[in-house]
């Protein structure tokens, strides 16, 4: 397992709390978000408009900025562009009410690290923040072979082994396992998996993720060995080596 770079995205296992700036004009949503993030161990500062956000960013160092797309006075995208223009490289996750792809492309091009559509579960946001920080700390390498515990996935050669034994998998099953193994020890939510494995930027009616996880568990099942995939209730799945 790789050692996470400082600051640790895993707020649970570190003494240093992550500092988050919430930029959201809806006072109630902002308060809810601050409370929920506080509950997860974040140190939160909340501001209601773009101008205050820019001032706050100049004064304090944050680990992550949660930026509403639609803000009064200065728009979220403008705040982002000004930030990046001034060389502030703090990771930014855009919050949007609309979820249009054009917005997402625009946001990512302006320098956002990720994008989340309201409403979202706090766990979904938490998982995404951690994923963004991980990506910043150790950019994804195009490793052909991924290993976690007794499982090895070779994406290019389409080969999976557990405890030295080859396990035949379908294409999608292999891609799903590769994502879980790559992010071993971290929770991946259903929308994150749908995006990364299936290429969906929408949530289908039927739960295609759960069906594949079930199949993957059956395939990886070996007498005497524990189930390496952990279900995190109401959030997603995690590979435990």
């Amino acid at each position: 397992m790789r050692t996470p770079a400082s600051p640790s995205p895993d707020a649970d296992d570190t003494a240093i709390a992550l500092r988050a700036l919430v930029v959201e004009d809806d006072a109630e949503l902002s308060a809810l978000l601050a409370r929920q993030l506080g509950g997860l161990g974040y140190e939160v500062q909340a501001v209601g408009d773009g101008r205050t956000a820019i001032t706050a960013l100049a004064d304090t160092r944050f680990d992550v900025v949660l930026l509403d797309r639609m803000l009064p006075v200065i728009d979220g995208i403008d705040v982002l562009q000004r930030m990046r223009g001034e060389g502030v490289e703090t990771p930014v996750i855009l919050l949007t009410a609309l979820g249009m792809t054009a917005e997402r492309v625009e946001g990512l091009e302006a320098g956002a690290d990720d994008y989340i559509v309201k409403p979202f579960e706090i766990e979904e946001l938490h998982a995404r923040i951690r994923a963004v920080l991980r990506r910043r700390a150790a950019p994804a390498t195009d490793n052909a072979t991924l290993t976690a515990g007794d499982v090895t996935v070779s994406v290019l050669r389409h080969r999976v082994t557990r405890a030295g034994k080859v396990i035949p998998l379908q294409k999608t099953e292999l891609r799903l396992l590769a994502e879980l193994v790559r992010e071993a020890g971290n929770v991946l939510t259903r929308p994150m998996l749908l995006e990364r494995v299936w290429g969906y930027d929408f949530v289908p009616t039927a739960n295609v993720v759960d069906v594949h996880i079930l199949k993957l568990r059956q395939r990886l099942d070996m007498p005497g060995l524990p189930d390496p995939i952990v279900t995190v209730r109401g959030v997603g799945y995690m590979f435990c080596a």
């Binding site: 109630e28 949503l29 009410a97 609309l98 309201k118 409403p119 706090i122």
Partner: peptide, 16 residues
């Protein structure tokens, strides 16, 4: 969309 989704988002968050 914004004005309806935002309170809906709050409602959903509170219920959850």
């Amino acid at each position: 969309a914004h004005d309806l989704r935002t309170p809906l988002a709050r409602l959903h968050g509170r219920l959850a």
